[in-house]
Design a protein around this nucleic acid. Structure first.
Length: 575
DNA sequence: GCCGTTTTCGGCCCGACTGTTTTCAGTCG
């Protein structure tokens, strides 16, 4: 059983206990255990078999027994009991902003509310306003919250978040008295999808800035508005929180609001262990505050080297930062080129020359063209004849570029349902490299799909695997596939794996990219660009790579043109 | 329910904002 699935059930267990009004620390223990299991990742059978489960911090005797029962029998008796005693619709009420376990418990016990529909009926009839601890405002807030739950999706893409937050940051920066503005939260950590937007600013007097913020034209509704903090709903439904602190407090607040929550809890515990107290405003010791002018100084005060925001998930970054300086993670400027770009030869919007010029304009020294292969009829895939004509055009362009720039001849070759490739070997041999991707028969059984991709990974003419899980963020789950097995096979065969940087994909994800790195595999950051502007998506791939802890040496396209040329030849067995 | 360089019992991150209160509980991040 996968760690992800175990974690989900442990979370459910914690939530149901909360709704029953159990000891909050007992409830939290289940959520902590769920996070711990997520951190372990992979398949839990191995961990249990090796007896290492009880070494995982946050999993004690009781929860360990439940996890073992779950993995061996497929169920947790205690969870089944809770589910039986708890109306299934109750958990959904937690999604209504302003409703937590305590209020839901009261609503359930006094008004017999067990679903969102019950809640709406009760609020509209006015029954909620009369309850002890509730009032007319709470009732209205519940109605607004129900509208929100029913209309809005949960999360947004990073690319959407950046577009939404930009005007807010600009407006805050322009406000009188503002000295610094930073985006914090999951967006600064570059999490794949974003729940809400967190913006922090420094000003001697934050209140007037917040007054301006809630009056911005982008704001559709104000959820809370105080002298140091305001929360609004932007047009489109996304929540945006703005916090103001004084310049002295800024480094502490920047760290605190960047999170993650799990990372912050460890930081606070480290402070306590040193007889210090950390909050979002200061680090306090017995002899008064410990001044820090930057996040780096805060980490230093707690015995740590600087931890980049992308690693702050309590997933091993503390051990790293205790040992010594964390080696620089890969940056956009490290990329010398990229592979997997489309042109108007298949379903791209720009010509070969336009794509090449756009790449040069972005400081790249080479660009790999990987249009669709012949089976991809929907995408105007290239027949063998058209492949050869594209090669001729690329040769002519390369001649014109001279040493200044180089186009590589690649192909995004479909992995057919049986794991074979879309061209015969004698055609594949003519490319500089081959990206192998799945574009059909997504519904295959897990074993079949895994064997299919593993077979492609082992094909001697396949250079790299494209978007290996097939997921589309917020739209389509990954197809059923054992990615760990694919990663292991690719590493063994010397086949690289793409980090597809398209913000809709981000595939591989960071956790699997880290595994690939640990298995000795090489990764490639590819934009899957279908237009010149798509080349800018490389930055999203950099985000994934940094979250995976990748350095330039782990990524093929951080290599220079001459090195890459040599490596591609080696892959093909030409040397 | 978990955990231990204060501890095997008694803690568990903590501050802002809101609404319902008349001093605070609940929610949120």
């Amino acid at each position: 059983m996968l760690a992800h699935d175990v974690a989900r059930l442990l979370d459910e267990m914690g939530t149901l206990l909360e709704l029953r009004g159990e000891n909050p620390f007992r409830c939290r223990a289940y959520h902590t255990a769920a996070d711990a299991v997520r951190g372990v990742g992979g398949d839990l059978h191995d961990l249990i078999a090796s007896g290492k489960l009880d070494e995982v911090p946050g999993i004690g005797e009781t929860i360990q027994a439940k996890v073992i029962q779950l993995v061996t029998t497929g169920r947790i008796d205690a969870l089944e009991e809770l589910r039986e005693r708890m109306p299934p619709g109750l958990v959904a009420l937690l999604r209504v902003p302003g409703l937590g376990p305590k209020k839901i418990k009261v609503l359930h016990e006094t008004l017999a509310i067990t679903s969102l529909a019950d809640l709406r009926r009760a609020a509209e009839s006015g029954a909620i306003a009369g309850l002890k601890g509730f009032g007319a405002k709470t009732q209205q807030k519940i109605l607004d919250g129900l509208d929100f739950v029913e209309s809005a999706g949960d999360r947004i893409l990073q690319s959407t978040a950046l577009r939404l937050v930009a005007p807010v940051v600009e407006a805050v920066r322009a406000a009188p008295g503002v000295e610094r503005v930073e985006v914090c939260g999951s967006l600064r950590r570059r999490v794949e999808t974003i729940g809400d937007l967190d913006v922090l600013f420094a000003a001697v007097d934050p209140a007037p800035v917040l007054d301006r913020f809630v009056a911005l034209p982008e704001v559709a509704g104000v959820l809370a508005h105080g002298p140091t903090k305001a929360s609004v709903r932007l047009a489109g439904g996304v929540q945006c929180d703005l916090r103001g602190v004084t310049p002295d407090q800024f480094p502490f607040a920047l760290h605190y609001f960047t999170g993650s929550k799990a990372h912050n809890i460890v930081m606070r515990r480290r402070a306590i262990a040193r007889d210090l107290r950390l909050n979002e405003y200061a680090l306090e010791g017995p002899d008064g505050p410990v001044p820090c002018r930057s996040e780096a100084e805060l980490f230093e005060a707690l015995g740590l080297h600087f931890i980049p925001p992308e690693l702050r998930e309590d997933q091993g970054e503390f051990e790293l930062a205790e040992r010594g300086p964390i080696p620089p993670l890969i940056e956009r400027g490290d990329l010398k080129g990229t592979f997997h770009c489309h042109t108007d030869w298949s379903d791209g919007g720009n010509t070969l020359l336009e794509m090449a010029e756009a790449a040069r304009g972005r400081g790249l020294a080479y660009l790999g063209i990987a249009d669709h292969s012949r089976s991809a009829g929907y995408a105007n895939g290239l027949s063998i004849d058209r492949v050869r004509r594209q090669w001729d055009e690329i040769d002519a362009l390369n001649e014109a570029f001279g040493r200044a720039f180089r186009l590589f001849k690649g192909i995004e070759c479909d992995i057919l349902p049986d794991g074979s490739l879309d061209y015969p070997d004698e055609v594949l041999e003519g490319f500089d490299y081959v990206v192998a991707s799945v574009h059909s028969s997504f519904g295959q059984a897990r074993e079949v799909m895994t064997d299919r991709i593993v077979r492609a990974a082992r094909h001697p003419l396949v250079t790299m695997l494209g978007h290996p899980s097939g997921r589309l963020l917020l739209r389509r789950d990954a197809y059923a596939v054992d990615l760990d097995a694919v990663i292991d096979a690719a590493a063994e065969a010397g086949t690289m794996i793409e980090i597809n940087a398209n913000p809709h994909r981000l595939d591989l994800d960071a956790a699997h990219a880290r595994r690939a790195r640990d298995r000795g595999g090489l990764l490639v950051i590819n934009p899957d660009a279908h237009s010149t502007g798509g080349l800018d998506d490389l930055e999203f791939g950099i985000g994934v790579a940094r979250r995976a802890g990748l350095r330039p040496g782990h990524v093929l396209n951080s290599a220079s043109l001459s090195d890459v040329t040599r490596r591609l030849r080696t892959c093909r067995g030409d040397d």
